[in-house]
Every structure is written in structure tokens, then in C-alpha cells.
């Protein structure tokens, strides 16, 4: 039986144009293959046309005209997403003006979650980073990759902990100081200096280190406190954690050395 919510899950792939059932509202492509091709087309259309020996690209070259049409569709939709992004960033913690209330008893207007949409938009903006982590060998040589993994394992752990703390009613000062020290040690470690310039999370790491040090410095005599993340920061951390989770395993904080 078709429901009004079906438009949430019955989607048309923005790359190949095929209809597919999306497990999540935010899905735009029917497969990883289509997602990657769309990424190449957006970021380097010439590579897409010339690099036709690539197996992934070859499978879709027959649909090239279709792809061109769908790309315009993508741009139209992407434009909307970006404009929503601006709105979401401004209003994420306030009212969601896009939400349409159910007014008619016979029609159901699905509600959109500004928080989930903001995560999806953050992931879209970090699409390049996601591809770097999905296909690391294409971007980093073996020795650089070892450095990237060393830092990323620790970054993921720290982000997981920050998100956990942000959900807690009360965070022990000692636990937060451990986290802050870990950030400081990580940035002072020799591996941090060896990070490649294209590593996508260098700035985030520096920002988190500065912010956590600032908070730790302001605690003074408090033994515990309520650690809060702004909506934008939380969205950014959830998106980054999600990307890292596809690339590296989760390791316990106690099992990690942040210095060397």
C-alpha cells in the first residue's frame, strides 16, 4: 500500500536516474558506484571523461547522456540543499521554518528533522574527506597512510568521548582534563607534524584542542560540570565521527598512547 511517506524512501538516483528504495531520507544515490561517479563528475568532470579505463566509470559510460541530464537535476537539488544549509545553520536550535504542520486530516505532510538534515549537509560538504577515507590508497602513500591512521584512530576516540560527554548530565573534571591532555599530546606528537597537507581534519583537531583547553582552564574548583556542544559543533562532530568510523576501528581510550 502506498503511503504519503513513500516519497521519503522512493527516490530517483541523482546519478543514473533509476528509482530505488532509500533506507534513509537523506540518501541520494542508488549505490556506492553511482555516488562515486557523481563525486568525480562534480569535482573533476574532465577526469570523468578521460579516465574511462576505470572499471567503476566504465560501467556507467553508456548512460553518459542520461548522466548529463541527471547532473542538472542534481545541481538544482543541490542548490536547494545548500540554501537550506544556510537556513539550518542559523535556525537549527530555534524554529524550523521548513517544517510543515499537518493541517488537513486527509493529507499527511512529513516532518523533516533539521538536525538530521544538517548532518547530511555537513557530510555532503565534507564529501572530499569521505572519499579520501573510503579510498585512502588513492590519496596517501603507505608511510603517510600510517601517520593518517595513527592520528585518525585517536581523533575518532576523542570525538566519541566529546559526544558522549555532551550527552551526560554531568562530566567529571578529571575525565575532561584527561581528554584535554590527550588533545594537547596529540597535537604535540611527531605524527601530527607529519600529517599530509590534504588531511581533512587538521583544523578541526586544532580547534577542538583549543576549545577543550579553554573549557578545562575555566573549571577551576569545580569537580564536575555540564559539558555542552553547540548544535553546529555537534553536527560537525557527528559527521566527522561517521566518516572516520568507515575508515578506522574504535579503540578504547585507555589503550591509546597519544604522545608517540
Amino acid at each position: 500500500m502506498e503511503t504519503n511517506n513513500d516519497h521519503l524512501k522512493n527516490k530517483t538516483c541523482l546519478n543514473c536516474g533509476n528509482n530505488f528504495i532509500a533506507e534513509r531520507i537523506t540518501k541520494k544515490y542508488c549505490s556506492e558506484n553511482c555516488k562515486q561517479i557523481a563525486f568525480y563528475k562534480r569535482n573533476n568532470p574532465q577526469t570523468f571523461l578521460l579516465n574511462n579505463t576505470n572499471e567503476l566509470l566504465l560501467t556507467n559510460m553508456a548512460n553518459h547522456n542520461q548522466l548529463a541530464i541527471n547532473d542538472n537535476n542534481y545541481k538544482d537539488e543541490h542548490k536547494n540543499v545548500l540554501s537550506f544549509n544556510d537556513t539550518a545553520r542559523d535556525n537549527i536550535a530555534v524554529n524550523d521554518k521548513r517544517t510543515v504542520a499537518t493541517t488537513d486530516n486527509n493529507t499527511y505532510q512529513p516532518v523533516q528533522s533539521s538536525f538530521i538534515e544538517a548532518i547530511a549537509v555537513a557530510l555532503e560538504e565534507k564529501e572530499q574527506a569521505l572519499f579520501m577515507l573510503t579510498y585512502p590508497q588513492k590519496y596517501w602513500q603507505a608511510d603517510t597512510l600510517a601517520t593518517v591512521k595513527w592520528i585518525s584512530i585517536r581523533l575518532r576516540n576523542l570525538i566519541e568521548n566529546l559526544l558522549r560527554f555532551s550527552n551526560y548530565n554531568s562530566t567529571e573534571k578529571g575525565s575532561f582534563k584527561c581528554l584535554t591532555n590527550a588533545f594537547t599530546q596529540l597535537i604535540a606528537s611527531p605524527y601530527f607534524n607529519l600529517l599530509p597537507l590534504n588531511y581533512p581534519f587538521t583544523n578541526l583537531l586544532k580547534q577542538l584542542e583549543q576549545e577543550s583547553n579553554r573549557i578545562a582552564g575555566s573549571l577551576k574548583k569545580k569537580s564536575s560540570f555540564r559539558f555542552k556542544l553547540s548544535s553546529n559543533r555537534k553536527v560537525q562532530l557527528i559527521a566527522t565521527r561517521y566518516m572516520l568510523a568507515g575508515f578506522i576501528p574504535l579503540v578504547k581510550f585507555s589503550e591509546l598512547n597519544f604522545e608517540k
Binding site: 556506492e32 528533522s113 548532518i119 557527528i238 561517521y242
Partner: peptide, 17 residues
Amino acid sequence: YFLNDYSHFFYGSPNEQ
């Protein structure tokens, strides 16, 4: 849908598409 999407982003990874 909300709970599923939130859980996917918060605990999942791109490998679990």
C-alpha cells in the same frame, strides 16, 4: 525514519549503507 537516521549517523558508518 528519524530514529533510524539518527542512529545511523550517531553510531553507524558509511560501510553500513
